[in-house]
Amino acid sequence: MGWIIKFFTSSIGQKVIMSLTGLFLITFLLVHLIGNLQLFYNDGGQAFNIYSDFMSQNPFIQFISKGLYAFILIHTIQGILLYFKNKKAKTVGYKGGSSSGSWASKNMALLGTLVLFFILIHMGDFWWKIKFDADSIAAVTYAGMDPIKDVYSKVSHTFSQPLFVGAYLLGLIALAFHLAHGFQSAFRTLGLTHKKYTPIIQGVGLVFAILIPLGFALIPLYMYFNQV
């Protein structure tokens, strides 16, 4: 057992935690976006509401989602630990200029914090209300089904407020930069590099970092401009 603790407290082990949880969260982003694309159906939210009901009832999805929360937590805590440990290894910077490296790669902690705030706002507004504040969300009944929560209306209400739309856009920009470095970095940390494949990973990572946040960003924009 000792070796496990030793591994996860070693510098590379701690980075591996960041990498694996990060890759899981990346996968989640993709699944989450695909599900949310149903908001674009012009059916008054029926498809989306049925989808979100399914997601909240299915035991397997529920199990995975617990894992997701845990991973967000681990990624966050480990990230904070790394930040302070690295700060300790380099207490003084240079006055004469900055050294090489992309801005995103040097500001992952800042970007991560922004993304975390975004997640807190996001979950507070939807997840919390859906789960623990049932009254705040109306019910809707579709033909041949029991009444379910009208999450669509809730979403559409949230995104009618410019403040929320703005906050989402900011959060998603931070996410884009976080991904731009994090995606390929996760592979590097696991040692998954190769002269032939690394350029592909880097390319996919860049496309991912642009398209996924862009996809998410379209939702509030679409909903907002649909209502004005």
Partner: peptide, 27 residues
């Protein structure tokens, strides 16, 4: 400190040692 794959090391290395070494060591 711990590597976060910034790549400044490779850029400033006077002998231009590749950051791929780090990935290989991780593996």
């Amino acid at each position: 400190g711990m590597c976060s794959n910034v790549g400044a090391c490779e850029a400033e290395c006077p002998k231009e040692i590749s950051i791929e070494n780090i990935a290989s060591m991780n593996m």
